[in-house]
């Protein structure tokens, strides 16, 4: 380790940092395969919250100022996965099992090997929760987000 003799953190006592109570909330206890299997549906369900949070962090570039938006995203994630478990648990379990095992040893968790289970899950989600799988490229393409968030003041780096 280089320069261990004079390590200096850059946050001083005067700088604002949120308290531990503000930062400690219940986090989603999910592994990557569950997130991957539910990702597109989660994106549809929590579209507004996600876009609001990403806009905040892109505009202000400061994690301290986007805490509430981030908490809102996590809360929505809880809501979505709880609803998913209530409504389509067996279908999602089958789909997740397939996603977890797809891609062989590399564990790439590809969608393409699980179309059969996906069809069943799509049908269930559409009937019970009104969520349909978005068309391909929906999240990758540019989308316009309408919001009441005030415009950020131009910083000195702009």
């Amino acid at each position: 380790m280089q320069g261990i003799g004079k390590i200096i953190m850059v946050f001083t006592k005067e700088d604002y940092l949120p308290s531990e109570a503000e930062l400690t909330i219940e986090e989603l206890p999910l592994s990557s395969s569950v997130l991957k299997a539910g990702s597109l549906y989660f994106g549809q369900y929590c579209d507004n919250q996600s876009k609001e949070f990403m806009l905040c962090s892109q505009e202000l570039k400061d994690p301290r100022k986007c805490l509430n938006e981030g908490k809102e995203v996590t809360r929505c994630g809880f809501e979505f996965f709880k609803k998913l478990k209530q409504n389509c648990n067996p279908e999602f379990a089958a789909y997740h099992e397939c996603i977890y095992r797809s891609g062989g040893k590399g564990r790439s968790m590809d969608f393409r090997y699980c179309r059969k289970q996906q069809k069943v899950l799509d049908k269930c989600l559409f009937e019970k929760m009104g969520i349909s799988r978005p068309p391909i490229g929906y999240f990758s393409m540019v989308r316009v987000h309408k919001t009441d968030r005030p415009k950020p003041a131009p910083s000195d780096t702009d």
Binding site: L23, Q49, M54, P63, R64, G70, F139
Partner: peptide, 25 residues
């Protein structure tokens, strides 16, 4: 297929980033 995988990554990113920011702070 690659677009679909990218979609999944982008859709989950806010969830991961929110948690990451809190841990970082």
């Amino acid at each position: 297929l690659r677009w679909e995988e990218n979609d999944a990554r982008l859709a989950t990113w806010p969830l991961v980033k929110a948690e990451q920011d809190r841990l970082h702070l």
